[in-house]
Design a protein around this nucleic acid. Structure first.
Lengths: 122, 122
DNA sequence: GCTTGAGCTGGAGTGCACTCCAACTCGTAC
DNA sequence: GTACGAGTTGGAGTGCACTCCAGCTCAAGC
């Protein structure tokens, strides 16, 4: 796969993919004779996971750290697990907050509907 | 209440409070004879709600829009309700994604634990 | 053999959301 | 009466996470 296909499949731009490589989120792929990046299929799963970490609010620096550990292999399992557990806790907290906010918005929406109805009745 | 007390109570900095006023998130408060901002207690609830919208990922521009509508009074109820409903939908989607990610992290943590245990056994 | 399109590099630019700063004014405590 | 702490302004600076650009190479199609 060349960079354009990875971009299409992941929804990231080619610029973003090269940027991710530069900062260490994605390992530098092999190159063909013309110097172009040739990615293996496994990069898609990795990028998908990165996007999930991203979407749940993990900071770039921490994602880079995780990627570095992953590169280093099995001897970093414990540290990676700890990172995931820490992030899990953060996500759990944010999840609870989101549920609160959903409930609050529902109450407000209901109140607004009631007021709209009342105004119409005038 | 002067700006320092609002800052302490809300956890925002005085700079952020003035910035929020400048961009229209907070209505300009009354001033005392020395030109200092005097806030009513109701601003605390409003800031709390703003922070909830913020923490659930509503963009600054949209929060400003909501604040503008709120300033304009009851004739904007419908638009505000629609904004909240739209945001609710976004939050619901993100919530589902967070739950997925939590489950994925749990699976990974479990797998890592298993591998750590196995490595120890060698 | 020339155009087109995808890819390459290094570096500059963007947008968001603050955050900090200099230079000033007040009101209170000593 | 002066030092101090909290407030004021306008404007500059920061950090994050991309995003864009100029100027280049290469392979394939006509």
């Amino acid at each position: 796969m060349m960079i354009g296909e990875v971009a299409t499949r992941t929804g990231l731009s080619t610029d973003t993919l090269r940027f991710y490589e530069k900062i260490g989120l994605i390992a530098p792929p092999l190159r063909n004779d013309a110097g172009r990046r040739i990615y293996g299929a496994e990069v898609l799963g990795w990028i998908g996971f990165l996007e999930q970490l991203n979407a749940t609010g993990m900071k770039q620096a921490d994602r880079v750290r995780y990627a570095e550990l992953r590169q280093q292999g099995d001897c970093t399992l414990t540290e990676r697990r700890e990172m995931l557990e820490a992030h899990r806790a953060v996500v759990a907290t944010r999840l609870a907050l989101m549920e609160d906010t959903m409930a609050l918005m529902d109450r407000k929406v209901a109140a607004y509907r009631a007021m709209e109805k009342k105004a119409k009745g005038n």
